[in-house]
Design a protein around this nucleic acid. Structure first.
Lengths: 276, 276
DNA sequence: ATTGACTCTCAACTAACTTGAGGGTGCATA
DNA sequence: TATGCACCCTCAAGTTAGTTGAGAGTCAAT
């Protein structure tokens, strides 16, 4: 006895089109195909194969893998290897989904609290090492942060260019005293990326900012007066993340024209983090 | 300042081709495109958008959903709705993967025990109700199972055909005394599916075998003498499944020529199950 | 002979990109 | 000024595991 594709599909609880597809890719060919009409006829015996196929698919294996398992009778070791691989893969997926769920949950709570989509997204990325000309100094108080930094930026920039160097990235400030805004005197450094070979002096050093694998990053748009919000978002994210701060904060002035519209300024705040 | 696509890609830690794709689908267009060369130029300001995009992608949302969230500033309620939907979806996926993992684990253990891929696959499926002509009887002992069944099958078949009926499915035996092979006298029924309206007598009844939503099914190929293996596999599966038996076992003789080669016979064993 | 359910092939579509071919640009160096 | 090299462009095709649809042919019963 032989079954038409629809009957076979009902027995195996899958769609006719799936069966035609399995035929096309050579995974399960009908026992017989009418030479004139092209009708596919399946044998009851093939139900056994189909069930094996479906069982393997149910484990999450790809059709390609299933073809290998069904086609040649593979050595047991290889089969086990494939399964163990799949196991690891599934475990990874499970962990992944768990983290995703936590993030979705956090996002929902955040929206509930703020009543809108948050303005700041903290993303974790990796950054390459950067060779910089750098001045280390301190800022006496919050009031003079901007003017102090401006002066230092100008000094480093002038020095590099004055020594025939080329600037190859955005002006960057580094805060050594922790990522939150501290009240009093702060250790700060001001740096310009450069590839050029230039001399150092007692003020300007050449240094390499280290690569960071897990760098929390948030982008602030607008004047410096509101940059506190970005820091607040970063700190809040940090608290309920599995990370803790692991290095000086970097402030990259991606877009900064002192004479331009402050609303167009773009600053990236980077905080090296490590799993707690 | 503007960034070439490669620079922007490095900042956002994604591929150039992904950015081109986002441009193509209108999800994130470059701030500027050179009219003559087609070069895409991005503004630092767009990094903010990109981060938001990536954060949403990270939650597992589709690009279409992200487009909606980014495009119009959707009402908060709708955003929360989407996130909650996603949450439920992720939860489902997580459960799914957990089950898959258990099945992969079981399969590995099985292969380890048997030293090869198992010969029997148990699959759970649903079956429709079947109208049958049926005789209920008992089998006095295991020795005479085959001959008794043969006699009963012949009796029912002859009766249906003799009354002008048509047989619309495989001969089916039903075992009422539990799925394992019991030692002594067994309640059994023997049935032929039929759609025809035929009379009953005191031997042959017309009945409807009920639909079963969760029917464990295993396909045996070969003579009846080895069908015990299929039952063994089914029982073993049952034990370590979350199910228990929930009705009489059905034995469908999908392929059965009494005079033919027994190695060609195909029998499906069906066991209704329900979550314990 | 007709009807209705079923089947065939072939092409196009899905999501979110990636890969590759073939050709054009931008910029720094010799 | 030429040249090299890294980068950029477009367009087509490929990826998974099928589904959907058009247009045409077939089966089996009445």
């Amino acid at each position: 006895m032989r079954l038409k594709i629809g009957e076979f599909a009902r027995m195996g609880q899958l769609s006719v089109s799936a069966l035609r597809y399995y035929d096309e890719v050579g995974l399960l060919r009908p026992a017989e195909v009418d030479r004139w009409t092209g009708y596919r006829y399946y044998a009851y015996e093939q139900l056994w194969m189909l069930n094996r196929l479906l069982a393997l698919k149910d484990l999450g294996l790809s059709l390609e893998q299933i073809r290998q398992l069904l086609g040649a009778e593979l050595p047991v070791e290889q089969i086990k290897g494939m399964l163990r691989l799949k196991q690891a893969e599934l475990q990874e997926q499970a962990d992944d989904i768990k983290e995703r769920l936590a993030r979705v949950q956090a996002r929902i709570e955040q929206i509930e609290k703020e009543g809108k989509m948050p303005d700041y997204e903290v993303v974790v990325k990796s950054v390459e090492p950067v060779r910089v000309g750098i001045i280390k100094d301190s800022v006496p108080s919050m009031e003079v942060v901007n003017v102090t930094l401006s002066r230092l930026f100008e000094e480093v920039g002038r020095y590099i260019v004055g020594n025939g160097g080329q600037i190859s990235g955005p002006p960057t400030a580094l805060w050594y005293s922790g990522p939150s805004m501290p009240p009093a005197e702060m250790e700060v450094a001001v740096a310009f990326p450069t590839e050029s070979a230039i001399p150092t002096n007692e003020r300007v050093q050449i240094e390499e900012l280290p690569a960071v694998d897990t760098m929390a990053s948030v982008v602030h748009r607008g004047p410096f007066s509101t940059i506190g919000e970005a820091y607040a978002a970063l700190m809040h994210w940090l608290e309920q993340s599995p990370y803790q701060a692991a290095g000086p904060t970097r402030e990259l002035n991606l877009e900064f024209e002192p004479t331009g519209d402050p609303n167009k300024w773009v600053t990236e705040i980077q905080l090296p983090v490590a799993e707690a």
